[in-house]
């Protein structure tokens, strides 16, 4: 009697795993291709442009603030120096 139970249980476990896996396959293969544009980046492909900025002068200093860099920032700065 135990063998049929084992077979049934195995079959349904396989089925459960299979449809979850299939869902991911469907999502990955049917999802629209991601745009190459990165976050915050502007896309100028196909646009003809000429942007000239000149005579930039820093005219006033309004305020100054400081904060301690994080551990990661410190590490990055150290790596950069090295």
């Amino acid at each position: 009697m135990r063998l049929p139970i084992l077979l049934i249980c195995s079959l349904f476990i396989s089925f459960f795993a299979a449809f979850i896996a299939c869902f991911f396959i469907a999502k990955i293969t049917s999802a629209p291709a991601k745009l190459k544009k990165e976050e915050g980046e502007f896309d100028l492909a196909g646009i003809k442009y000429d942007c000239k900025v000149k005579d930039v002068k820093i005219v006033s200093m309004a305020a100054m603030a400081f904060e301690k860099p994080s551990v990661t920032e410190k590490r990055l700065l150290k790596e950069k120096d090295e």
């Binding site: 000149k54 005579d55 930039v56 005219v59 006033s60 309004a62 305020a63 400081f66 301690k68 860099p69």
Partner: peptide, 14 residues
């Protein structure tokens, strides 16, 4: 390296 500084300024140009 020890502190982060932020300087607020006004920039002018063409």
């Amino acid at each position: 390296g020890n502190s982060n500084y932020t300087t607020y300024v006004k920039a002018e140009g063409d």
